[in-house]
Design a protein around this nucleic acid. Structure first.
Lengths: 155, 155
DNA sequence: CTAGTTTAGTTGCAAATGCACCTATTTCGG
DNA sequence: CCGAAATAGGTGCATTTGCAACTAAACTAG
């Protein structure tokens, strides 16, 4: 390939990384006031949406490595934002749920985050946001299917 | 807000994080064979596209914190993939450029990464990829403009 | 020209990360 | 049933990360 033919800005993942990078830096700034870091925010939001979930489910929803999540949840639990509960039917499983304080925390922060999100999407027509959603969901499904396939073949 | 009204999968940044997370995990796997990590790959690709650039420019292009980039470039320089050169007109500036070995490295890896990218985008019509590009570029511009504005006011 | 400010890049250090490994359950094949 | 394999979650440890602070060079105003 002639080097001139390779242009960064023609690649979707370049832009994805740029957008997530810029927004997470900005988000981190905003969350500092609340004593929260970005992955903690993702965990908080996921738990708020799901009410109850297991460690593994939350790791997936919040895009946090399982081992990292253990320590993230330690901190959030110490801070009193959520509780670890045993699962009735399966002794291996930890059920997570936000405490009232955790829910309040989310509700206090969410308006600012929503505003940042809206700002990032300023000027983008609703129809294109729809497309964005659909395409991203498809990409995620594609990648998940691929991982599944790899695992099957590799044994 | 009633908790039931907050749904993760209705938010663009949830999907962005999911997609980048899944793809970077997959990418990391693929790069392991080449002794490269994901941020190093981004730096390699950015330098390949740009031929020459400064540390600050590369930090922006590859979405790597400037202080982290110093050490990333140390490693890549030690590995013989790029060289640090002084700038003629400004003694503060470091000009970076891939060596022949660095270019070869990129060319060797790129086909596999391109394949992964194509896989992630499988089934997405070209027209929608166009929309994706345009929307992401706009989002990035929005976020950059916001950061600039903040700095001006806070300064 | 010279003192204060901005910009480019680096380093110290404390904290976060993730791989490899471990333990405790549960499930599955025979 | 029983032993092997799978699954949920947690630890140890080396590596990576990024904030704060620093050095050095280049502007900028008086």
């Amino acid at each position: 390939m002639p080097a001139a033919a390779f242009q960064l800005d023609r690649h979707v993942f370049y832009w994805l990384t740029q957008v997530i990078g810029a927004r997470d830096r900005e988000l981190a700034q905003g969350l500092k006031d609340f004593g929260l870091r970005v992955p903690e925010w993702r965990a908080l939001a996921a738990l708020y949406a799901r009410q109850k979930c297991t460690m593994s489910e939350l790791a997936d929803l919040a895009t946090i490595d399982r081992t990292t999540l253990t320590r993230t949840i330690d901190r959030m639990s110490d801070a009193g934002w959520l509780s670890r509960l045993p699962d009735a039917g399966d002794m291996r499983v930890t059920r997570l749920a936000l405490t009232a304080a955790g829910k309040r925390m989310f509700e206090r922060i969410w308006p600012a985050v929503r505003e940042l999100n809206a700002l990032a999407l300023a000027g983008v027509p609703k129809s294109e946001i729809e497309v964005l959603h659909r395409v991203l969901a498809r990409m995620r499904a594609n990648l998940k299917a691929y991982v599944g396939e790899e695992e099957t073949h590799a044994g």
